Simulated assay, not measured.
Amino acid sequence: MAKNTIKLVKPQSPSSDDGEAFVSTELWNVIAYHLRVAQETSFQAFKRRVGNADLKPGRYAILSIIAEHPGLTATDLSRACGRDKSTLTPALKDLSQRGFVVRERSSTDERSYIINLTPAGKKLLQKLRVHAHAHDQQLNRIVGQENRAEFVATLRRIVDVLSDEDD
């Protein structure tokens, strides 16, 4: 098994040293647990594909959203990414320090900043798109092309319903 990969096995399975992770009986059928593990595993596979641990899938999402909506604010970007501003801010700071995005004061609201890609950010995004497309194709093979639309719709429904609930 590849480094940093896991294989989930039922709690009653015998122990093993080959990267298997034994899930508690309580978590074995819990959707939220498997969503989280699947997300993390997918992110690790994306980072391996890109070959640069600093270029996480979240960075690709941020760059993609900025490219499609130049001049958006950090608040708008955090909503689009599904991340709160406290976790988005360090990512933006990193992308800014690396010369991929630029943050400028808004001409209409002095309290906020607008975000745009730099030429280097656009170039990086082109490179990451190739990797993201290949990664998505791998996920298509796992989910099955015939199940893709339903699977994505289910994930969107989870976001929609849980986003609307009161905390």
Rank of each mutant, 00 (worst) to 15 (best):
A2H: 01
T5K: 08
S16E: 09
D17W: 05
D18A: 12
D18H: 09
G19H: 07
A21G: 03
V23L: 09
N29V: 00
A32H: 13
A38P: 02
A38L: 12
A38S: 13
Q39N: 05
Q39G: 00
T41R: 04
F46A: 08
K47C: 12
V50Q: 03
L55H: 00
K56F: 03
R59V: 09
R59S: 07
Y60V: 03
I62W: 04
S64V: 01
I65Y: 06
E68N: 15
L72Y: 01
L72D: 02
T73Y: 03
A74H: 05
D76A: 14
R79C: 00
R79N: 13
C81H: 01
C81M: 14
C81Y: 01
R83E: 08
R83V: 10
K85R: 15
S86F: 08
T87C: 04
T87V: 13
T87G: 00
L88K: 08
K93I: 12
D94S: 13
S96R: 11
S96P: 01
Q97R: 13
Q97L: 13
G99C: 01
G99M: 01
V102M: 00
E104W: 00
E110S: 12
S112I: 11
S112M: 07
N116Q: 08
L117Q: 05
L117A: 01
L117S: 01
T118R: 05
G121C: 04
K123P: 05
L125I: 02
K127V: 12
V130F: 07
Q138T: 14
Q138C: 04
L139D: 07
R141Q: 15
V143T: 13
G144S: 06
G144I: 04
R148E: 10
A149L: 11
A149V: 11
F151E: 03
T154I: 06
L155Q: 08
V159T: 12
S163V: 00
D164H: 10
E165N: 02
D167Y: 11
